[in-house]
């Protein structure tokens, strides 16, 4: 009898121990995260530069640049979304003699995907902040955008003496 009781006791305890391993087992799956970074490539090429208006008389408006239009090309290796922006690097043209020609209401740009001259309504005013050119190119595989320029010469604008009025502009390719 005592042996039987001991046997049953041992069996029950064994079952409980084994059950503990099974029921309390909390199989955790090891997790590892795989990651990769693909670097971005982007290039911008400007051709037909040196935006030139030639000689303009004061009091004339909507004067288009006389040289072939600026072309902004995004390189075919570009693999990121890209906007083309233009920005004037100062608030006015200067002629090296202290004379200035303010860009506000006078200096404009328009972007097109073709060589057709933009309508007046397509032109945007140059500013010192980045302004997105309407013909933003597609990202992958590159593309080209033509940028046109227009200039008004206010009445009684002082003549440029030492050198022509010039301004520096930046065309940027960004996200």
């Amino acid at each position: 009898m005592n042996k039987g009781i001991l046997f049953v006791t041992g069996l029950v305890l064994s079952v409980l121990v084994m059950s503990g391993f099974v029921l309390a087992a909390d199989p955790r799956q090891a997790e590892a995260v795989a990651s990769v970074t693909v670097p971005g490539y982007r290039s911008l090429t400007l051709t037909n530069e040196a935006i030139s208006f030639g000689t303009l008389v004061p009091g004339t408006n909507n004067n288009m640049a006389v040289n072939p239009q600026l072309i902004a090309r995004i390189g075919p290796e570009t693999n990121v979304e890209t906007d083309v922006n233009v920005q004037a690097n100062s608030t006015s043209f200067t002629d090296g003699s202290g004379h200035t020609l303010n860009i506000a209401n006078n200096f404009f740009f328009a972007g097109r995907l073709d060589l057709v001259a933009p309508a007046p309504s397509e032109f945007q005013e140059y500013a010192q902040a980045n302004a997105k050119v309407a013909c933003t190119t597609a990202a992958l595989g590159g593309g080209a955008c033509t940028i046109w320029h227009r200039l008004n010469i206010p009445q009684a604008q002082q003549a440029s003496t030492v050198s022509p009025y010039t301004i520096s502009v930046t065309v940027s390719a960004t996200d």
Binding site: P39, G40, Y41, R42, T47, N48, E49, A50, G75
Partner: peptide
């Protein structure tokens, strides 16, 4: 009188 020029800048990475 107009010099046809091509000025190019490419960069990587971008971030």
């Amino acid at each position: 009188t107009f010099i046809d020029a091509a000025c190019s800048l490419g960069a990587t990475p971008l971030g």
